[in-house]
Amino acid sequence: MAVEWKTATLAPIPGEEPIHLGYFDTGAPENVQEPYTTIIAVHGFSSNGGAWENSAALFAKDVRFIAHNRRGYLGSSDHYEGEAKDAVGRYMIDLAGFIRFVAEKLNVPAKDEEGRGGIVVMGWSKGTASTMTLLSLLASPKQPPFSLPGSLDLQPYLSTLKTHLRHLILFEPPGETIGLPYTPDYAAVINSDKPFMEAFPAWLVPTVPEEKRHMLGKAVDVKNAAKDFTVWLAERTDEKECARVAEVGLKHVPKDIGVGLIWCAGSIQWCRDTGAWIAERLGDQPNTVVRNIPGGHHFFNITDAEIFVPAIESLIAELDKRVYTPGPIVPSAL
Rank of each mutant, 00 (worst) to 15 (best):
R322A: 00
W277C: 04
E313H: 05
P326L: 02
A276D: 15
I329P: 00
W277N: 08
I312P: 08
A276E: 14
W270K: 10
G296F: 14
I329V: 11
Q269K: 12
P310A: 07
H297G: 07
D273Y: 09
P328Y: 04
H297M: 12
F299H: 09
V289G: 04
V323H: 07
P310S: 07
H297A: 08
D320K: 11
P286K: 00
E280M: 12
I329N: 07
L315V: 10
Q269A: 12
N287K: 02
G295I: 01
E318Q: 15
G295M: 08
G295S: 11
I316E: 13
T303A: 04
V323R: 05
N287C: 03
A276I: 10
P286C: 00
V323P: 03
D273S: 14
Q285M: 08
F300N: 12
I312E: 07
H298C: 13
F299W: 13
G296N: 07
R272I: 12
D320Y: 07
P328C: 08
W270V: 05
V323L: 03
L315D: 00
R281M: 03
R281Q: 11
F300C: 03
D320I: 03
G296W: 05
V309G: 01
L319H: 10
Q269S: 15
I307N: 09
N287R: 10
V289I: 07
